[in-house]
Design a binder for these strands. Sequence first.
DNA 1: TAGATTGTTAATCGATTAACAATC
DNA 2: TAGATTGTTAATCGATTAACAATC
Lengths: 220, 220
Amino acid sequence: MIESGDLAVPAATVARLPHYLRALHALEADGVRTTSSTELADASGVGSAQLRKDLSFLGSFGTRGVGYDVASLSVVISSALGLGSTHRLAIIGLGNLGHALANYSGYTARGFEVVALLDVAAAVVGTRPSGSLAVEHLDDLEKILERESVTMVVLATPAHAAQAVAERVTASGVREILSFSPVALQVPDDVVVRSVDVAGELQILAFHAAARAASRSAKG
Amino acid sequence: MIESGDLAVPAATVARLPHYLRALHALEADGVRTTSSTELADASGVGSAQLRKDLSFLGSFGTRGVGYDVASLSVVISSALGLGSTHRLAIIGLGNLGHALANYSGYTARGFEVVALLDVAAAVVGTRPSGSLAVEHLDDLEKILERESVTMVVLATPAHAAQAVAERVTASGVREILSFSPVALQVPDDVVVRSVDVAGELQILAFHAAARAASRSAKG
DNA sequence: TAGATTGTTAATCGATTAACAATC
DNA sequence: TAGATTGTTAATCGATTAACAATC
């Protein structure tokens, strides 16, 4: 359960809110004004009971017998997700992945703004990977985080550097980190770390592939 | 529960196996020969009871009073994850992200090999984003999947193209998909889709930031 | 009113945690 | 033997699902 003001929302529900929001945006783009829990659930890849249950943690927004207004439900979820205010991001580490993340175009539409890029490589510092922002040196991390009022950090450094950078970042007061480094970061209790691990995802798929192969040979 | 041969492993456990494997590799690299559930759990970011419980689904590999042999536990988890055989990947969509994924160097060490790159843009087809493999046209998808015996596909296309590509890929017999497109793919029941949604992860962090702000203003 | 669909309750299911007997 | 640590049991906790009364 994550307490937000007067709301208490289960972690599993929070993790699905972005799916619902995305599905609502897609419906809006198609000109759909009103939707049902069944339609929205299908578009989100969950069951309709789960969708209704999830929404019930945020309040009561539908009309019995009718459904949900797409535009207003969209606003409800956006504001629950804190997308009203703009979140200021720093991307640390501009290798392959950091470069791609710096060029990702979807931030602004979703309430995020990349305000700083940092790296240690002399070949990278000073370049403008996304055309606009110049890469600054990691040595100046604390200064830059303060100057730009950074509230979230995206960590795309090599694994061996991640822990040290995370310590400096949290010491500077940043409390939200998205990490692409496949290591368990040790951070203060009040810091939230989300991790994306591409190799790990592939390994999970490999487990399923192996399970499939085993059941095939058992049956056949 | 995912059945693999004689094993039945909970999905939550499977999702943690890559963390354990990574932590074991780190210990190995540090020259550590033997570890305990406490040490390995700390390095993996979980509790020791959870680690022991997870391992118990794979079998019994420790020595009471002593701990676990790092090298042999590493082998146990690797083979549970099906990393003995090499998995042949195709990356579809070579925008920013696909480009970064094509250049990622960690595949081979972890039992994966990128054997094909596909896109539709004339400017990209024929180029060699990673220096070696040339990008082929999506039109030839089916032919390429068969030619290269592809077993897993990484989808990095724009969201609007993802569903159509997923249908062709599954029709060709691929049963494991890693998708970076933020849409709920409709695929046959026996196909496993793992999704990575960077914007969604940021939104989850934004929820936590909003929750923190709300509790601060309530207290202060 | 009749039909549709929400919001909520209660039941089920699965995952986590703590505690400890087994045993090296 | 004494100390350490596993593997497992049982209790707790949280998440999902089905069913349906409320109500538009």
